[in-house]
């Protein structure tokens, strides 16, 4: 499943579609501590987290993860959103808990 297809699945709120829509999602990664995400983040992963700030967007780009999915109704703050728009990074959001989202995406990409 590609980033664009996940955006269009109707399962998530699309905060920023980004310009990497043809990228294949290869894995799901869950973590809220940035320096752990920095070293463990999986390339091409959908990163499910409750951290919605500019640093999340930076870590996603530096680790080559494919998109961010904000869980638990968390919102991306204004600097984070501006950064995501500037970098063309995909950000989705959901009211669901992290595990539920991760499982859902895992099933979609398997």
């Amino acid at each position: 499943m590609t980033v664009g297809e996940l955006c269009d699945s109707g399962k998530f709120k699309v905060i920023n579609r980004g310009d990497d829509t043809d990228r294949q999602i290869g894995a799901v990664f869950c973590c809220d501590l940035l320096s752990i995400a920095m070293s463990r983040g999986i390339e091409d992963a959908a990163w499910v987290t409750v951290m919605g700030n500019i640093n999340t967007v930076a870590v996603m780009a530096l680790t080559d993860m494919a998109l961010i999915v904000l869980a638990e109704g968390v919102q991306m703050d204004a600097p984070g959103l501006a950064k995501a728009q500037e970098e063309g990074s995909c950000v989705l959001a959901s009211e669901k808990p992290i595990f539920d989202i991760a499982l859902e995406i895992h099933e979609l990409i398997s």
Partner: peptide, 15 residues
């Protein structure tokens, strides 16, 4: 903001 795991310096050494 998500910092404070105490993994920054260990990551720097590792990578």
């Amino acid at each position: 903001l998500g910092f404070g795991a105490g993994m920054g310096l260990p990551n720097m050494k590792k990578y």
